[in-house]
Design a protein around this nucleic acid. Structure first.
Lengths: 144, 144
DNA sequence: CTCTTTTCCTATCACTTTGCTAGGCTTTAT
DNA sequence: ATAAAGCCTAGCAAAGTGATAGGAAAAGAG
């Protein structure tokens, strides 16, 4: 029942892009250094985000990445589902349609639906902009 | 972000024991047949439940298992945490104390805490007795 | 046009977890 | 004594995790 590093790193990566949005593209090397994550591994993760159109890339010298939209437009759920796959606690609830044969008589399914809803309620409500705001609060505390 | 078969089977196993509580011990072979799960695998899972005192075993012929307490006394969270380990979405929140170095400045931690709370709110509230009740509702629907 | 800096792409790999299967040992009712 | 149950440990194939490695392609600077 864990979010893997892939999802967690993707979130920190996107947050890093949001926080370092100076107009100039951000290099993967710099993100990796700030976040203390292997740059080669980050490269693979950002590739997924790039293909999904979540970030824009600029190649060549002075190249790098920036967010494709405003931070408000990304929910945590979007980022995690893209990198982690479905967040449902059981495979039956992964897709649109439940193909499990036992679904009509399965009591635990009701429980898993409750859990799925509880998880989605959190990740689909919190946006990247919220994380940015929280970050500034933390930084403020540290200055005082 | 999935509950493994271990936790799911443990839950169905406990529910099976609750539903088949006739006073006589329930054999693992019968649970396995009803639930369509390998009996050898169930054996390993029930061993965990037995060692934790969640079920009582009777050895020898006419032996088997029964619940150690009333279904109301078991939350889903207890059963899942015993068989799955901590349900926290990130390792930092697994134990009592967070040993992560980044915790003071980590924004995503706040998100993970929200997610952890949302998950716990569900699994610590629903009991085995609730599942039993839901099961009878489903069975009633099928009779009508 | 060349050099360098960056992203892009694919392969590989050690390690761990998952989901079992197998086989024998122990207890106990008949 | 026998057979039916639980108890215990080992093993193992497949998948997932968390990277590392090496080069190809693009593009700006000189």
């Amino acid at each position: 029942m864990k979010i893997s590093t892939k999802g967690r790193y993707a979130l920190r990566l996107m947050l890093d892009l949001a926080l370092n949005n100076t107009g100039e593209p951000v290099r993967i090397k710099d993100i990796a250094a700030r976040q203390e994550i292997s740059d080669k591994y980050l490269e693979q993760i950002i590739s997924t985000l790039n293909k999904a159109g979540y970030v824009k890339s600029i190649r060549g010298p002075q190249g790098g990445y920036h967010l494709a939209r405003e931070p408000e437009k990304y929910t945590v759920g979007m980022i995690l589902r893209l990198t982690e796959g479905p967040l449902a606690p059981v495979p039956c609830l992964d897709g649109e349609v439940n193909t499990c044969e036992r679904q009509d008589t399965c009591v635990t399914l009701r429980l898993w639906r409750m859990l799925d809803t509880a998880i989605s309620d959190v990740v689909d409500k919190v946006t990247l902009a919220d994380l940015v705001e929280w970050q500034t609060q933390i930084s403020d505390n540290y200055v005082i």
